[in-house]
């Protein structure tokens, strides 16, 4: 069974004078409950590929299917609905909503995106707050917690809708190495506990080692796929 299937994905950006080939003929498949990393130097196409998988952008050519859906053909509203149902996002800068508490930030997608009943909301948030070890921080606002804690809240928010896939673009870039390892460890634990596929991009070679499937990118081309056999649950 395949969660994501990408065939001959190409993404070009037209600047004033030249066409920039951000991705060229990229093929890959990702299975459910994988812990995947796209790695490569700056400008290699990591963020572009995450944006395409996240239905935030569309390829110039190629096919992309996620959870048996041809996401390239989705309209704007359909894309938003697809993201709300199947995807979770973790951002480099955490991107929590500053006027909402930790609890409310995690609750946000359940109310504004999925319209989940209050009792179920409460249960899911309590479970995730406990899972990311933030139970006693629920009433704090984002500016009252540390960077590592913010990223844990972001992980909880990404998982609260029970998505099939969580995308994290450089999730540890703004964290010190100890916190970065803790966050990656937490993501892996969440994958183990909830069976969610995690895909993250990084240029940190130490963090890359934590991934079970590694796609190496260079100048917009997929140059290698490495797997750690036996580490998948």
């Amino acid at each position: 069974m395949v969660l994501i299937k990408a065939q001959k994905i190409t993404k070009d950006y037209q600047t004033e004078d030249v066409v920039v080939h951000a991705l060229q003929d990229v093929d890959f498949e990702i299975e459910p409950a994988s812990f995947v990393s796209f790695v490569g130097p700056s400008g290699s196409g990591k963020t572009t590929i995450l944006n395409l998988i996240g239905c935030l952008d569309k390829p110039s050519a190629g096919n992309l299917r996620i959870a048996d859906t041809d996401v390239i053909g989705l309209e704007r509203k359909e894309s938003a609905a697809f993201r709300g149902k199947h995807l979770g996002f973790i951002f480099q800068d955490f991107n929590l909503i500053p006027v909402l508490t930790v609890y409310e930030n995690i609750e946000y997608p359940l109310i504004m995106v999925q319209n989940i009943a209050p009792q179920e909301r409460k249960e899911r948030i309590s479970r995730l707050l406990a899972a990311v070890d933030m139970t006693d921080q629920g009433q704090k606002y984002p500016h009252q917690i540390s960077g590592g804690q913010k990223q844990r809240v972001a992980i909880a928010r990404a998982l609260v809708t029970n998505p099939a896939l969580v995308l994290a673009d450089e999730p540890t870039a703004n964290l010190d190495s100890q916190t970065a390892y803790a966050v990656i460890g937490l993501m892996k634990k969440m994958r183990d506990d909830f069976g969610t596929t995690f895909i993250f991009s990084t240029h940190d070679t130490k963090i890359v080692g934590e991934a079970e499937v590694i796609f190496r990118l260079e100048d917009g081309r997929l140059t290698a796929k490495e797997t750690k056999e036996g580490t998948k649950p």
Partner: peptide, 16 residues
């Protein structure tokens, strides 16, 4: 703008 991007990315419909 970044907040709008965030809530749009996580699936908030344009109408909301």
């Amino acid at each position: 703008i970044r907040e709008i991007g965030t809530i749009a990315a996580i699936g908030t419909l344009p109408g909301k």
